[in-house]
Design a protein around this nucleic acid. Structure first.
Lengths: 235, 235
DNA sequence: GAGACTAGGTGTACTGTGTACACCTGTCAA
DNA sequence: TTGACAGGTGTACACAGTACACCTAGTCTC
């Protein structure tokens, strides 16, 4: 008589669907329970708590990332793997925020990380260089970077237009960029004028190309002088 | 008779000190009020709400970033400015999280952004290239990147050591990196084995060096083919 | 001085959150 | 038949942010 009985699986799936539709902030234990036609505390039989719920959701998302077929070229393989990760994470907007908020790694995250690392090492990069390039990738390895410009200037409604008009005077350089982007993009605002996908790939390629150069130069991390890889120079 | 009367200034300062000491999660309107020997609602006469409080705190932190003295070399200027930002943000650990959670820009953020942009443009980089390089920097421009490896594997206490022992088998590539880092660093864990500052500067330099190369090549963004700057090649 | 205005601290109360804990109930093994 | 147990229920608590009505002390004007 019970409606399709609960399970961790079903809890996670419903939570994800809800977060997809209503946003991660709208997802509370109570709402989720309601969504499942169940009393809030019922969830705790399948999930240790909210933290565990979020961990579980991330686990599912990361598990959805499909591996790339090896081409033999590490750079291309890494590129495709990360763009594939991006596709997955973009389907679930909330995962960016949640992933960032997590402080411990889940098994699926470790798997992804390890396989990505493997692409570099198997491609011939030194362990040393691979390590630092992974750091350089940062969260980009998950398929997103901080879309900083997505943050529009303060929208106090009142001061907004004022600030917008004053922008060229107060922030001439930002105005230049905004206008250039507006020329190629949709409208004049700082954010939506940018092509997220393009920006992402640009940044990704800067890092991968840098890695390739350092690799070709047999770069090795100095005995921690903290001066970085300052030996890349054009020509 | 009133103890040193409240002010937005004092509210923000106290909030920052509290967050510095107790962490951002411990900071609630009620705790903050208590800290100021005042009833919670008193804060709302100086701050519109919690969001505004956080915005204000960020405003102060970002305002603390000191400008660099121009050397005439854009790359070095940018580098120093960002490392200076890093120094400031590192003093207030919580600012990383808060900055990321903000969805709108505050005036101080716009100022910083504009001045950073100016360093590129005044250095001779095209507006186009500057734009994309800013994106490539991402949050690194604020002095932090996602310290991904800071997240240790699940610490279930029980499964932790098990997982640690099994790591070389299940995640051979991560194990390689961990061992290499342990050799140079402190202990064998994935996180603390890394020198945060070094990693940060490495990543920063990869991006800046990439920018320099593209600049020297008179790079220009293709008519949005979304294929990125794939024309950097060693030799 | 007298009254009004006001900036700013107070008190109470409401909604929403995560979750501890005791409880009930249906299923299945012995 | 029994009784263990997996899993859904109900109540209750502490904590969050904040709306709203209130009080109070200082200042400004006549």
């Amino acid at each position: 008589m019970r409606r399709a009985t609960l399970s961790r699986e079903r809890v996670l799936q419903t939570a994800m669907a809800y977060a997809d539709a209503q946003g991660i902030d709208a997802l509370s234990m109570r709402r989720l329970a309601q969504e499942l036609d169940v009393v809030p505390m019922a969830l705790y039989k399948h999930v240790a708590g909210k933290e565990d719920l979020l961990d579980g959701m991330i686990e599912v998302v990361v598990g959805e990332i499909i591996g790339a077929t090896a081409t033999g070229f590490w750079k291309q393989d890494v590129r495709e793997r990360i763009l594939s990760a991006r596709k997955t994470l973009v389907r679930h907007q909330w995962s960016r925020t949640v992933l960032e908020s997590r402080s411990a790694m889940t098994p699926a995250m470790l798997d992804y990380l390890d396989s990505l690392t493997g692409l570099f090492i198997d491609g011939g990069l030194s362990v040393d260089l691979t390590h630092h390039v992974m750091h350089a990738l940062g969260n980009r390895m998950w398929g997103f970077s901080q879309e900083l410009f997505a943050a529009t200037p303060r929208s106090d409604t009142s001061s907004f237009t004022a600030q917008r008009d004053a922008l060229p005077r107060q922030h001439p350089h930002l105005a230049q960029i905004a206008m250039a982007a507006a020329h190629a993009g949709s409208d004049a605002r700082l954010g939506p004028g940018c092509d997220d996908q393009f920006e992402f790939e640009f940044a990704l390629d800067v890092v991968l190309d840098g890695a390739e150069i350092l690799h070709a130069q047999h770069w090795t991390s100095a005995p921690r002088t903290s001066s970085g890889p300052r030996d890349i120079r054009p020509r």
